[in-house]
């Protein structure tokens, strides 16, 4: 997710490290990789790796058909009401799209070596598909299912029909044609988890627009100091939420 920002800052860091004689003692043994640090606490200004807010326009991973289906799904998982706008207007589909286009979607951090065996539930996901691959296959299988049962795309179903399908996926009554090591249940859990992430994460990732979920909960967001309220027991916290980039 942050690989780019990270490597950028690392390059900067290495450049600035090279500028001071920090590699002195063992410089012979170290070129650019691995760091030898001795004699001081290395620190350079602006070396941090702040997150980059997503651009809300367009789709990076989803096809138009997939995007429409995911927008419809997140709008049923988080329906619009007096508490918040729906999942779609909160940006949950954009959030998922950007996550899938990034390192999360590619499973960059996960252990992805073969052999792939069908495991026990206690062993967690054991399939060979990345999260992006799971969405691709899962959404296609969902479209196949709704075409078989209703002769329509998911997005064309009525809200009640959409709820019935999602319920079926959630409870195991509907079984999609996926592949060994990737169950319908796992597909639904992945979508539900990512939708909730989008709804409750900092808005910089594309979801939780206007900090809708934080306002609903009374969660103050990216604030970092509650010393003035720690011993005000059972008293509502008075301030509105803030986000990392200061959106109010």
């Amino acid at each position: 997710m942050h690989t780019d920002a990270r490597s950028l800052s690392r390059r900067r860091l290495l450049a600035s490290v090279a500028a001071v004689p920090i590699l002195a003692a063992t410089a012979d043994f170290f070129s650019a990789s691995g760091r030898s640090i001795s004699g001081q606490v290395p620190w350079s200004p602006f070396a941090g790796a702040p997150p980059r807010p997503v651009n809300p326009l367009g789709w990076y991973f989803f096809t138009p058909g997939e995007a429409a289906a995911v927008e419809a799904i997140v709008d049923r998982l988080i329906p619009a009401d007096h508490l918040t706008p729906g999942g779609k207007d909160c940006g949950c589909a954009v959030f998922i799209d950007r996550q899938l286009a990034g390192s999360f979607g590619q499973a960059n951090s996960l252990y992805t070596k073969a052999p792939f065996a069908v495991g026990l539930p206690i062993q967690g996901y054991q399939g060979d598909l990345t999260p992006a691959g799971r969405y691709r296959l899962g959404l296609r299988a969902l479209a196949d299912y709704t075409h078989g049962a209703y002769k329509k795309d998911f997005v064309q179903l009525s809200p009640a029909e959409q709820d019935a399908v999602l319920n079926g996926l959630d409870t195991g009554k509907i079984v999609l044609k996926l592949k060994p090591g990737f169950s319908t249940r796992e597909f639904f859990e992945l979508v539900l988890q990512n939708t909730m992430e989008g709804f409750f994460a900092d808005p910089l990732y594309g979801g939780n627009r206007g900090m809708a979920s934080w306002k609903m909960l009374g969660f103050p967001g990216a604030r970092y100091d509650y010393r003035d309220h720690i011993d005000k027991h059972n008293v509502r916290y008075p301030r509105d939420p803030v986000s990392i980039y200061g959106e109010a």
Binding site: W43, S44, G48, I244
Partner: peptide, 14 residues
């Protein structure tokens, strides 16, 4: 200062 930066360490997703 660099890695637990007070400006953005409060990022639950990340």
């Amino acid at each position: 200062a660099s890695d637990f930066n007070i400006a953005y360490i409060q990022d639950e997703l990340r």
